[in-house]
Simulated scan of single mutants.
Amino acid sequence: MDAQAAEEARRRLAGRGAVEAGDGWVDASEPGQGQHLTHNEIAHSWAGEVFTDKSLEAAEQVRLAFGLVDLLDEYWVTAEIRHASRGAQGSFPADVLWDCYRQRLEAEQVAEAITYSLRVDWFEDRDTAGTAFAEVLGNGVDHIVAKGAGASLRRADRVLACSGPVPWPVKRQAYDTAARLPALHEPLFKGLLTSYHDVYGDLEPAAALALLDRLRLPAGTPHLAELRFVLAAGHTNHHRSPRAWDEAAQAATD
Rank of each mutant, 00 (worst) to 15 (best):
Q103H: 14
S85F: 05
A5S: 15
I81L: 13
A183D: 14
Q89D: 15
V77K: 00
G191M: 08
G22Y: 06
I114N: 01
A206F: 05
Y200F: 13
L231G: 11
W76L: 00
A233H: 13
S29C: 06
W76D: 05
L137V: 05
F123I: 06
P187W: 02
F229P: 03
P167H: 03
Q109S: 10
D213N: 15
P165M: 07
A129N: 09
D2T: 10
A129F: 12
S55R: 15
W98N: 01
L209Y: 11
L211E: 11
Y196V: 05
L137N: 01
A207P: 03
G90H: 01
A207K: 12
R228P: 05
Q33P: 14
A134L: 08
I42P: 10
S117T: 10
L215S: 13
R10L: 12
G234H: 13
P167A: 10
G148Q: 09
D198L: 08
A129L: 12
V19I: 14
A161Q: 07
A149Y: 09
L211D: 10
V120H: 12
G34Q: 08
D198V: 04
Q250T: 11
R16P: 00
I144Y: 03
H36M: 08
N139P: 02
W168G: 10
G130Q: 13
D176S: 09
D23N: 08
K54E: 14
D246P: 00
D2M: 10
W46K: 02
R10H: 11
L71G: 01
A249N: 05
D99C: 00
L188K: 06
D99E: 15
L212I: 09
E8A: 15
E204S: 10
P93T: 03
K147F: 06
A18K: 11
K171F: 06
G90P: 04
P182A: 02
T78L: 13
D127R: 15
G34W: 09
Q250Y: 07
C162V: 15
G67W: 02
Q33K: 11
Y175K: 01
T115D: 04
T236W: 06
